[in-house]
């Protein structure tokens, strides 16, 4: 084991490169939160790799004083898979935006999640294409006006969390860019989880989609419009902590109720079970005005990682044929001497 000679700080994870995001971009807050979290999770710069695709979020590796690979659009999970298969000891983070991860890279994200490669995958979802100057993205809501949709977009958006759950992800969490208390907790949980950890971060694009998450992020509405789920705890929200989620009687859906009204007691409120995939799906599906947006670890149910299984197989093969000799390989099967 590597012994860390001295306690590292956030500064040890910051590069000397000038950060080039727009002033006020939500990415700054995420960068700061992660740089702060790295020492707390015992990360070491030399064993950490940040891999990204293309887009605003994908500039992230340049600002982390670790190993970093800024690759091509949408393919970061595939590069990261190759890195983990070569050196599973490395702590690999994948960073991308909603376009990078869910549009051009949707295929790689799906397969990386189902294989359960041990990665922390961060999606900075701002529901817009920033670096190409403001076109609608696969997470944009219907009606989004953009240079390529002057009359408003007509496509139904994809939900990152539902996509991940449908792909077989074993860890799905959500947070918001500016919540410097919640975000580090989510980084830690994602990091702790062995396997593919998907963390969706609702991130504000100040230039092309400013305020798109205000309906649940704005301080004036946050407590009523967000529910922070925690394993083993009742799913309570609201300024008065008297709102809660429960199953609607007779139908398979969640409703928001007020404790103390209509005979509702705390015991009626659903307790979050992060190992319950069905519950995770219900929580990820809450996108109506009547229900709050679920943040936190929606699902965490570990399984063996891809690279561990691959390496186990290789170890088995090596154990069965310990004298792997290349000259023998070339002479396997029928040979004859002239």
């Amino acid at each position: 084991m590597n012994v860390v000679p001295q306690q590292l700080t956030a500064k040890d994870f910051a590069t000397d490169q000038e950060v080039r995001w727009c002033p006020g971009c939500g990415d700054y807050a995420i960068l700061k939160a992660l740089q702060r979290t790295m020492p707390e999770i015992g990360a070491t710069p030399e064993k950490t790799v940040f891999v990204s695709g293309i887009g605003c979020a994908a500039r992230f590796p340049y600002y982390m004083e670790t190993y970093g690979f800024h690759t091509i659009h949408g393919r970061a999970p595939a590069f990261a898979t190759g890195i983990k298969l070569s050196n599973p000891e490395l702590d690999v983070w994948v960073v991308g935006g909603d376009g990078d991860m869910l549009s051009i890279g949707g295929n790689h994200l799906m397969h990386t999640l189902r294989r359960n490669v041990d990665l922390q995958i961060l999606i900075f979802n701002n529901e817009i294409y920033g670096l190409t100057k403001g076109q609608y993205s696969p997470t944009s809501r219907v009606g989004t006006r953009s240079p390529s949709t002057p009359q408003g977009s007509v496509e139904a958006p994809v939900s990152a969390a539902l996509f991940a759950l449908g792909s077989g992800a074993r860890f799905v969490a959500r947070s918001v860019d500016t919540d410097l208390k919640h975000l580090p907790i989510m980084f830690k949980r994602a990091h702790e989880h062995r396997g593919a950890s998907l963390l969706e971060i609702f991130q504000n694009c100040i230039v092309y989609n400013d305020g798109v998450f205000d309906s649940f992020k704005a301080p004036s509405v946050a407590s009523e419009r967000q529910v922070r789920v925690e394993h083993g705890k009742p799913m309570i929200f609201g300024a008065e902590k008297n709102r809660g989620l429960r199953m609607r009687a007779g139908v398979f859906e969640i409703e928001a109720v007020t404790v103390g009204e209509d005979g509702v007691t705390v015991d009626d409120i659903l307790v979050h079970d992060e190992t319950n995939r069905v519950m995770a799906n219900l929580l990820a599906s809450m996108d109506s005005d009547q229900l709050p947006v679920a943040l936190g670890v929606l699902y965490c149910n570990p399984a063996p990682t891809y690279e561990a299984s691959v390496l186990d197989q290789a170890a088995d093969v090596r154990a069965k044929s310990p004298n792997a000799d290349l000259n023998k390989l070339l002479r396997s099967g029928y040979t004859w001497t002239v």
Binding site: T71, F79, A80, G82, L85
Partner: peptide, 9 residues
């Protein structure tokens, strides 16, 4: 891409 990632590593 996985091959390039491997070479990087």
């Amino acid at each position: 891409c996985s091959a390039i990632g491997a070479s990087f590593a």
